[in-house]
Design a protein around this nucleic acid. Structure first.
Lengths: 175, 175
DNA sequence: GTGTGGAATTAACCCAAGTTAAAAGTCATG
DNA sequence: CATGACTTTTAACTTGGGTTAATTCCACAC
């Protein structure tokens, strides 16, 4: 696809260690990151220090702060590596400008954004309509593999509950 | 903007009464609706008959089922008029095909989808990180006008709580 | 006025999940 | 295999919000 070529040409690759941040909540970061290998998490930190996990980012996924890249405001979340990562980075603006003149690139971006929209709607549905237990059951069904990649603590923060609550739910669901 | 012209040329306008559905959960509907006037709600109905409101759609907003339009699957939600509405409808596929060859249209669509993504992320944040009371306070601050447009019952279903719960929270917040 | 039907509030009770803290597992390192 | 640092589980207690049902508020019709 033309988009891959554009990214290969305009992007650059680098590695990060587990624990390294790509950016933090409140900072400006106008990049789009493509994950070649490794694992990251995007998370919110509330004023009283509580963490909520927005998403886990796996190889093949893309991540960046829309708020910072597109709206020019500080990022609402932080992005950190959970494992050593190989990443490719491309400036959002380069992609955005290219999309204005190149129909192949813009078509790829439209497809990307439509897929992104569908994913966000699915998450919205789960958070709005399902109970904590329902969200756990759905995760079990849809991405059971994630359970081996991250701690239960992180699964809980992703599902919008505490690790203690998740432990209880696990027991209820399996027992 | 070129997009407006495209919609004026390829779309058609019509009216609906309060209570009319544009489509229902489980149906296929591959249209994008542009609201000229009136008010609609998009909502999920669970197996046991509980309603959860995905969003209210105001004049100037657009709405359609991404799942149906883009992924070709049945819509995950229903769309109904809360007040008499003047709408313009355009087939998603027409827009999508046009975006592949026309850079002005695709640029407008990219902008639309980026804005859409930012809105969905904000909603995700609220549902993941805020308590019921927190979500109500945020709504009070960000769109106080909506309180006069729809019943408290509907506000509650939008915020992911029951009307009884919202009544309690209102009392707590103001009293 | 007097009904009538939906919307909102209130009250009583219930429960899922949060909180705090202790106990038990797990695993890497010396 | 002992030590220490997490992670997970368990327990005891608290709490926010759900549920059900009764009551009060309205707006509108008659």
């Amino acid at each position: 696809m033309k988009l891959d070529e554009f990214i290969a040409k305009n992007g650059s690759s680098f590695s990060k260690e587990a624990g390294d941040h790509l950016f933090r909540q409140g900072e400006h970061d106008q990049s789009l990151y493509i994950v070649q290998s490794g694992l990251l998490k995007a998370y919110y930190l509330s004023a009283d220090g509580k963490e909520n996990i927005k998403s886990f980012i796996l190889p093949g996924d893309n991540i960046g702060s829309l708020m910072s890249s597109y709206a020019g405001k500080p990022s609402t979340f932080s992005l950190v590596c959970l494992k050593p990562c190989e990443l490719t980075v491309v400036e959002f603006s380069a992609l955005y400008e290219a999309s204005k003149t190149d129909t192949e690139i813009s078509a790829a971006i439209v497809d990307f954004l439509l897929g992104f929209g569908i994913k966000k709607e699915a998450r919205e549905y789960e958070l709005l309509c399902l109970s904590a237990e329902g969200r756990y059951r759905k995760l079990l069904k849809n991405m059971p593999g994630i359970l081996d990649l991250v701690t239960q603590n992180e699964i809980a923060r992703y599902l919008g509950m505490t690790p203690v609550g998740l432990s209880r739910i696990k027991k209820r669901v399996s027992g």
